[in-house]
Design a protein around this nucleic acid. Structure first.
Lengths: 206, 206
DNA sequence: CCCAATGACTTAACACCGTTCAGTCATCGG
DNA sequence: CCGATGACTGAACGGTGTTAAGTCATTGGG
């Protein structure tokens, strides 16, 4: 039944890659973390279930690594979207919109990364802040501050956290609450309204 | 081992109540839906596992009913918080803050209601819109509109959805991403900034 | 050149899970 | 008093993640 040929002596890492690939495929196909069982992954690769434990400490680590890989793509996706936007305020909206879109298009990965129980493996604060995606958001906020479009008296990181929370709120609802009559421009509206609010903070301080 | 005395002929519904109580207790104690197993619930009540299926179609229905009951309390909690607030804009912020606090204090129930996979049983749009909590939010928005503090040209329901998304974003991150240095006034900041943004929409239309 | 060591994996099993089916047993209406 | 029925139990099914022990080919060293 097992189609796969056993790897050579130094090449055990091959299986590791195949496991990651198969898991990603199954996760995308089922859209449900719990349906991607260890046995299903093993069968997809053509290997016995315990073989997985030679390369990952547990199922969580495997799933998480797959989703974290997607997260790295998120940064590129956002940067590409914001690349041509000159206005620094508009750029914040565009970034948010890209974030939401990415989350909606990779719902299960998004769920694993940001909607899980805290006890499970999750992105640590350190990982998150050193993440390109978050770091670039902070930079984008600071550009808007330097352009005088946002208050400079506030921490750019804090404002970035707020923008994250808003974009996450939209993403999370779109993913989690199906069938609700969300307008097509929902994300856009919410993000724009929020940066409006941020701008009016700037007005009062200047 | 089973301590419970079998119910009398017409009184099978007693067990139903006990099951709901035990499930709520276990959910609060463990803070993890998946750790509250059918067998654990049954043992807590002093009954065999299959007895549960005489009163609920499946485990999901039992868990969901417990969480939905909490959701009903949410409305009262929010109304109490907003009761004494005269300013209709401030009232929106206060409502949002109460929402976030309630979610953070009942994280697992919140997760079940709003952070689950769509395929699982969830609040339907109809249920949600007929919910007291959402209906009262819409009314609060409309009061602000009638007071001329928000645009009247927009649908109150849409604005309510936006406020919900913002409050949900904060709640969801506070619940899901532990250890991140969220400021103490995070919810307050975000909510206030958002209603600021909504107000400035009103300015441009007037 | 052969053999012991080791890396890569398998087989079997454990303890749990949600759920179903067939049975038991006390109570109640006639 | 007895058959029906409501309330529940015991045993089992197919699934889950995970572990312990065993197999087997390859490979570096004597």
């Amino acid at each position: 039944m097992n189609t796969r040929a056993r790897a050579r002596r130094g090449e055990g890492a091959h299986l590791r890659e195949e496991l990651l690939d198969a898991t990603e495929r199954l996760l995308a196909a089922t859209g449900d973390e719990e349906m991607v069982s260890v046995r299903a992954i093993a069968e997809a690769v053509g290997v016995s279930p315990p073989a997985i434990y030679l390369h990952f400490p547990d199922k969580d680590a495997l799933i998480f690594e797959v989703c974290a890989a997607r997260f790295a793509e998120l940064d590129r996706f956002i940067e590409d979207a914001a690349a041509g936007v000159r206005d620094p305020i508009e750029a914040l909206v565009v970034r948010g919109r890209a974030y939401v879109r990415f989350g909606v298009e990779n719902p299960e990965q998004y769920r694993v990364l940001f909607m899980r129980r805290g006890s499970a493996r999750a992105l640590t604060p350190a990982e998150l802040r050193e993440t390109a995606a978050f770091g670039n958001l902070v930079k984008a906020v600071e550009r808007a501050q330097q352009a005088g479009r946002l208050t400079s008296s506030e921490d750019g990181v804090r404002i970035a956290m707020e923008l994250w929370a808003v974009a996450h709120g939209v993403t999370s609802l779109l993913i989690g609450v199906h069938g609700f009559p969300w307008p097509a421009d929902f994300a856009d509206r919410v993000l724009r309204t929020y940066v409006d609010g941020l701008s009016s903070r700037a007005d009062t301080s200047s």
